Simulated scan of single mutants.
Amino acid sequence: MSRKPRQWYKGARFHITARGNRGSDLFYDDADFEEYIQFIRWCQEDMPFILHAYCLMTNHIHFLLEVKSHSPGEIMKFIQFRYAKYFNSRHKVYGHLFQGRYYSKLIDTRAYFLAASKYIHLNLNPVEAGICSKPHSYMWSSYPCYLSNKESPILTTKALLNCFQEPKRLRYRAYIMQGGGEAFVDYCKEYRPQGS
């Protein structure tokens, strides 16, 4: 039986996750993280999309992205296929690096857009995993870019920051650090990506 095609349209936003096959690591060192980010950049040049937030964990990734003229599937195939080839060649391993297809959830409201960004920047990821005590200290996340004027070649902060009044960065930080909030709690109940 064939798989049901995923729905998408120009301007659609998605929370996307992908994990290592059987929970195995996707990144062994900083060079791997840097190479993955380079593949994101190349993909944006080839088939433009907007990356609103991301977090690269050792064995899984999170994106909050907005598509333009290419589907999330085309974008993920570009990045994952090239990264898997690089990883297998560099580390002299064989077989599937990623566990099945990526997982995605359509973000269809402003509240979910904000909740997904909080989920990516705070709830599960480096803080909960015990990698760091504060989300802004994790270098493979987009969160530090939201707290400073630091530019990222792959990230667009404008849409999320525009959800807040001035001073936008301080208000976004307060939103991330505050308690759950109804939209966030609902988001976590409805959607805890597989393997994260």
Rank of each mutant, 00 (worst) to 15 (best):
K4C: 07
K4G: 00
R6T: 00
Y9L: 13
K10H: 07
K10C: 10
F14T: 10
G23K: 14
S24A: 08
L26A: 11
D30R: 11
A31Q: 10
E35T: 11
E35M: 11
Y36V: 00
I37G: 00
F39N: 15
M47R: 15
P48N: 03
H52G: 03
C55W: 04
L56G: 01
T58G: 01
I61E: 00
I61W: 01
L65E: 02
L65M: 14
V67S: 03
V67C: 06
K68N: 11
H70V: 08
S71V: 01
P72F: 06
G73I: 02
R82M: 00
Y83Q: 05
R90Y: 05
K92I: 05
K92Q: 11
Y94P: 01
G95M: 09
G95D: 04
L97C: 10
R101S: 02
Y102G: 03
Y103M: 09
Y103P: 05
D108S: 13
Y112D: 12
A116P: 04
H121Q: 10
E128N: 12
E128M: 12
I131Y: 14
C132S: 08
P135E: 05
S137Y: 13
S137E: 14
Y138C: 05
Y143Q: 09
C145Q: 07
Y146C: 07
S148T: 15
L155T: 03
L155V: 07
A159K: 12
N162D: 15
N162K: 15
F164V: 13
Q165A: 13
K168Y: 04
Y172T: 07
R173K: 15
A174N: 14
Y175V: 04
M177T: 09
Q178I: 06
G179S: 14
G180E: 12
F184I: 12
V185E: 15
V185H: 09
V185R: 15
V185G: 06
D186M: 12
Y187M: 05
R192C: 14
R192W: 13
P193V: 00
